[in-house]
Design a protein around this nucleic acid. Sequence first.
DNA 1: GCGCGTCTTTGATCTGGATCAACCTTCCCG
DNA 2: CGGGAAGGTTGATCCAGATCAAAGACGCGC
Lengths: 251, 251
Amino acid sequence: MAEVMSARRLHGQALPYVVSHDPREPCAHCEVRGRSVCDAIPDRDLARLAAAAVTRDFPRGRVFIEEGQPAVDFFNMTAGTAKLFKMMPDGRQQIVGFAGAGHFLGLAVADNYAFSAQAVEPVRVCRFSRVKLQSVIHDFPALEQRLLETACNELVTAQETMLLLGRKSASERVASFLISWARVSGTCGHPRDRVHLPMTRADIADHLGLTIETVSRTLTRFRNEKRIRVNDASEITILDRAGLEALAAGE
Amino acid sequence: MAEVMSARRLHGQALPYVVSHDPREPCAHCEVRGRSVCDAIPDRDLARLAAAAVTRDFPRGRVFIEEGQPAVDFFNMTAGTAKLFKMMPDGRQQIVGFAGAGHFLGLAVADNYAFSAQAVEPVRVCRFSRVKLQSVIHDFPALEQRLLETACNELVTAQETMLLLGRKSASERVASFLISWARVSGTCGHPRDRVHLPMTRADIADHLGLTIETVSRTLTRFRNEKRIRVNDASEITILDRAGLEALAAGE
DNA sequence: GCGCGTCTTTGATCTGGATCAACCTTCCCG
DNA sequence: CGGGAAGGTTGATCCAGATCAAAGACGCGC
């Protein structure tokens, strides 16, 4: 599945796979359907869903959701990774999460987006207009249930991030990040020891409430302690998972 | 409405008002219904809701939800204030939020609670068993929509807290907390300048990722700068709202 | 009204991570 | 293949907030 993505560094241009095999039935062949809210729609009604969606590609660096703008569209990520962030007037930035394939973006009742989204590697999304999605929800209550489930899961993740940001030390933060990114970016939730990090050190720092320098120094220390191997800037291998997990938990 | 609560310091024992006037129709007379998810249920079906709920009182200090325990019940706060927190093995604590009247607790799809809840002043709740609530949801899809709305709002709040914890200075954190608590604890969302703080300095510190001493020093500084008046340990008056708001936003 | 425990404030000192400053490495792109 | 920009590492120094310490202030039970 997602294996395709990390075999070689595809630093930018081409998306690693096509999402729809048959342009008339895009949702039926969607690789991420099983991992996304869309699996709440029964097969026979997929055309209905497909009619409401438009596929869009964004290159690395493209901001495709801007905090504060009217929330006219919702997005379902089908490939790539985006960072979701809030920014302060003086440029300080907090990345509230990274979104990968299957992630639903725009969960907000309010009329404006609560965060911005930027592709950290080439991204493909399904875009739904707010009104069309609402009509699909109206016809398929199971989709609303699925969205509630998704929102609750994100809430749990957010609470873990608050614990991290409020109470963990720098090395506990980096260990927590490596473990959780390995879990979430692994194939279908199965953790892998080779972990691809499509985001920069600055992004990791802005997610963990640290500076670039501290992230870099902490990774170097983990390397010296034989907890990880740094294959190159954007790929590490976890050598001592148990140790990192213990550190992440604060034991 | 909530005015009753703060007129005098009721430091502990008695709850400030009764929730149900007629024990046979508790939900129909519930003071917090308009502010809670329960207003998704039409009047004529309130008996159905009431049958699924049990009223419970908890004294100050009582932990009524324990992180990690099976999530068998959901709660709707009808009076008082609770802190919602996660704890690390060595005792470090992060308060992920404070819940007041109208707040729905237990939004979690998972089988276990993601955080603990403790009353910081006497609390009254409506308790629903998971299964009963699910059957009510099944019959009233509007309730599910209301829960999704609630979850999304909490997600937005959580993202703001992440920005606070990851990137704001101590004084920006305290200013943000005062402004947002004034908003949320004010009557029906209207901010007031006299703000009652039922939680201790330790709780505020554990919410803001600071220490007791830093919170105390920052409040003293705000007092010296004439931004606030400290009426007593648990009540302050906002004197310079605009200044605090600007500080909170990081301008 | 007294004594005790809890909460809060204030002061002195310390330190983890930020900041400042090079330098190195990779990857474009012409 | 050479030059420049962006990203990453490493070292030296600094400082906001933590930690340590002690002394009020309040509230409660007797």
